[in-house]
Amino acid sequence: MEELYALELIHKGKRIDGRKFDEFRAIEISTNIISTAEGSAKVKFGETEVIAGVKIGTGKPFPDTPDRGILIVNTEFTPMASPEFEAGPPSENAVELSRIVDRGIRESDAIELDKLCLVEGENVFSTFVDIHIINHHGNLQDAASLASIAALRNARLPKLENDKIVRGEYDKPLPVAFTPINITVSKVGDNFILDPNYDEEKILDSKLSISVRDDDKICALQKQGVNEIKFEDIERMLDTAIEKSKELRKLV
């Protein structure tokens, strides 16, 4: 029922928690919170809470990129985070979330993967970003993206001895060149809102996930939600994301 109230309010120009349409909930970022991980971050958007951990290992590169390190993003919708999440293999939504985070980081060339090559075709650093959803109160996509880039920004490359990793000892920071920020712009009726909470998410008509790099370039787009988007809405959605990304990037 909360969502119907949220909808009614949006039509009146208000939000259920009193925010402006383009206002995020209070954002908290804490980094370097897990000593066993090479990099880590916890992000809170109000009640929504996401932890991202970076583990770095070594392994064989992919055959089509023999001179580049590996990046893998994975997400767990833990059953504790929401009554609608179930234990088991990643759901369609978890896979989509991971892949949108992945594209934002990969396509922006945020990580300098060419610097992660040890022996071409044989041995490279592989970077795993694991996203753990702790509490789902809406806008997991933006929270997960922010946690991931924050974790990568404080990740360190492990020390190597004879190409073997020495756990607990570090060499230098992971080379990260950009801070891509994912902003999902949602449409409800004729209104555009940012950072919908759990109740607002149920009443969205459509949404567009937009990943913006430091130089305002758009690095990934994904239309989500069951309804269509109008052509004339896209420019406004892009402008909103570009503007807001600057604000969030300052927090990382």
Partner: peptide, 15 residues
């Protein structure tokens, strides 16, 4: 209807 039902992009583009 003239509306968009799929939009995915990756790369680096200006607005």
């Amino acid at each position: 209807k003239g509306v968009i039902s799929l939009l995915q992009m990756d790369g680096a583009l200006t607005k």
